[in-house]
């Protein structure tokens, strides 16, 4: 390990949302959206956050992009703390860190042309002074994401979902960021188009040395895209490991259950499914000890009493299970 800081370092991130309570009543209920999450992302690396709805994966992404304030914890970019920065202090950070969301229909202003949409970050970061310079840059960006230069004169509604997502990616690339947060960026797309966008993201990453925080619920896509994966459940990281290690030897019962629940496009696949019973507990009132214990086939009394810490199982494979050795 070198001493150079990772591109992104998240330490003990906590996000709680107070709920209920009107103007005059003090609310005491909180949603524990993210509890004590730590991870890092190296330059040029893809880290995926996977988990089911409500596991806090998107909240982590939003905290990282400083779209919402965090409750506790530290976030550093290249060693510099960004969690406490003011709006104006955040501006240079925003140039280096961009987000692509799931729904390309609501992320693009329908009244702006594609040229204006893609030129907006260039203008706001002062990256292209003249109109001609911007025009040329926008054309280059569109070509880079597989659209024709001529597309810039058109409006977002004239494009299909996949093409709109390409426009969103061009916009995210405009400020030449170090990292892009993709929040379910391919989830709304049809299979054939999804493959195009996944390939595009992987090509761009290779060419530009981009790091990606890839937030998704689709394990097959995640396996395809990622260098490392963090599995979240109810706001906590259950397991974090590199791709090979996680998919070949999951060391957490939740990861194992998730993997076995994915329907395989192969009717002759022979596998025994560990179908989890019950629902995810409420994040307002999470269970004591291990959050997964209410659905875990391996749970014992110890799991109700003690919160399992993330432990290194060797070669950076971390699992938050008391019985990780036996999984």
């Amino acid at each position: 390990m070198t001493d150079a800081p990772h591109l992104i370092e998240v330490r003990n991130l906590v996000k709680r949302f107070p709920i209920g309570g009107g103007l005059f009543s003090r609310s005491h209920k909180v949603v524990h959206a993210v509890s004590d999450v730590s991870f890092h992302i190296a330059r040029g690396e893809t880290l995926s956050l996977v988990g089911e709805s409500g596991c806090g994966k998107s909240t982590v992404g939003k905290c990282l992009a400083r779209l919402i304030p965090l409750t506790e914890g530290e976030i550093t970019l290249d060693g510099q703390r960004i969690d406490g920065l003011s709006r104006s202090q955040m501006k240079p950070v925003r140039k280096r860190l961009n987000v692509v969301f799931q729904d390309p229909f609501s992320s693009l202003n329908p009244r702006m042309t594609v040229e204006d949409l893609v030129a907006e970050p260039l203008r706001s970061h002062g990256m292209a002074r003249t109109r001609a310079e911007r025009h040329a840059r926008v054309g280059d960006l569109l070509e880079k994401v597989g659209l024709a230069r001529e597309a810039m004169a058109r409006m977002p509604h004239q494009f299909s979902g996949g093409q709109r997502q390409r426009i969103c990616i061009a916009r995210a690339l405009a400020s030449e960021p170090d990292i892009i947060i993709c929040d379910e960026a391919v989830s709304a797309l049809d299979v054939s188009v999804q493959a195009q966008i996944i390939n595009l993201l992987m090509d761009l990453q290779k060419d530009l040395g981009l790091a990606l925080l890839f937030i998704s619920h689709d394990l097959a896509v995640v396996e395809h895209m990622s260098d490392r994966i963090a599995v979240m459940y109810l706001g906590r990281i259950m397991e974090i490991a590199d791709r090979e290690s996680l998919f070949r030897h999951p060391r957490h019962p939740y990861t194992r259950a998730l993997l076995s629940a994915v329907p395989l496009p192969d009717p002759e696949a022979d596998r025994d499914r560990a179908v989890l019973t019950g629902d995810v507990p409420s994040p307002i009132d999470p269970p004591s000890g291990c959050f997964f214990r209410t659905r875990c086939p391996m749970a014992t009394d110890r799991c109700a009493a003690e919160v399992p810490a993330l432990r290194d199982m060797g070669a950076g494979h971390m699992s938050a299970c008391h019985y990780a050795e036996d999984v």
């Binding site: 493959a195 396996e223 395809h224 791709r243 998919f247 496009p265």
Partner: peptide, 11 residues
Amino acid sequence: LKAVPRLGSSL
């Protein structure tokens, strides 16, 4: 069928 990412296929 080829465009779907499959679990285990890229390991």
